[in-house]
């Protein structure tokens, strides 16, 4: 294995490990999220976003990393609104997402394997339907929320942190009211 492969592979192993430890490869977890019984998926996702956002901001703020050199996912509002909606329906029907379906598959779950194969078919379907979708696809823009709103980056980081903590408290209340179903 050449040097270029190693970091990608190691990061992938850690990624797969973290997903499995949190139970993200279990379709019941995601079903519980959408039936408001077990909000672990929400808690994991947002604590991960919060950790990486705060960590990235502070490492950049003290000058250890250059946040501008980290590849920023593009923004294309209409395509992401439409693609997100389609993705969300698939998400709840499959009970898995692209990353977690792979974890499900290697945990021996055949529904994970079915979702993986379905995803491959979806890629091909997208390619065949490209002529019809090109207009909706639009063009990439690379911008951050602080840039778009003209606010200091740290202010947005602080506001997102506050919103996430409030949302975590709300999630605990919802679970307590609906009766948490603890998945083994």
């Amino acid at each position: 294995m050449s040097a270029a492969w190693l970091p990608a592979f190691v990061i992938g192993v850690a990624f797969g490990w973290a997903l499995e430890r949190g139970g993200m490869g279990d379709a019941c977890k995601l079903a519980g999220q959408f039936q408001l019984r077990d909000l672990a998926v929400f808690k994991i996702m947002f604590s991960a976003v919060l950790t990486a956002m705060l960590g990235g901001f502070w490492l950049a703020r003290v000058g250890w990393i250059d946040l501008n050199a980290v590849a920023l996912p593009p923004t294309a509002p209409l395509a992401q609104l439409a693609g997100g909606a389609l993705f969300g329906v698939g998400f709840v029907v499959a009970g898995l997402c692209p990353g977690t379906s792979c974890v499900a598959a290697v945990s021996g779950r055949f529904d994970g394997l079915a979702a993986v194969l379905g995803m491959g078919a979806g890629v091909l379907l997208f390619a065949e339907a490209w002529n019809g979708l090109e207009g909706l696809y639009g063009t990439d823009r690379y911008v951050t929320i602080p840039e778009a709103l003209g606010l200091p980056y740290g202010l947005v980081v602080g506001l997102v942190t506050g919103a996430a903590l409030v949302a975590f408290a709300a999630a605990e209340r919802i679970e307590a009211r609906r009766g948490r179903v603890v998945q083994p």
Partner: peptide, 24 residues
Amino acid sequence: GLVAAAAVLGVAALAAGDPLPGGG
């Protein structure tokens, strides 16, 4: 502990402005 850490870093970020461009 996690909530406290997030709250401290988040509140401090409110006043921390922008990440340094280009590190140095």
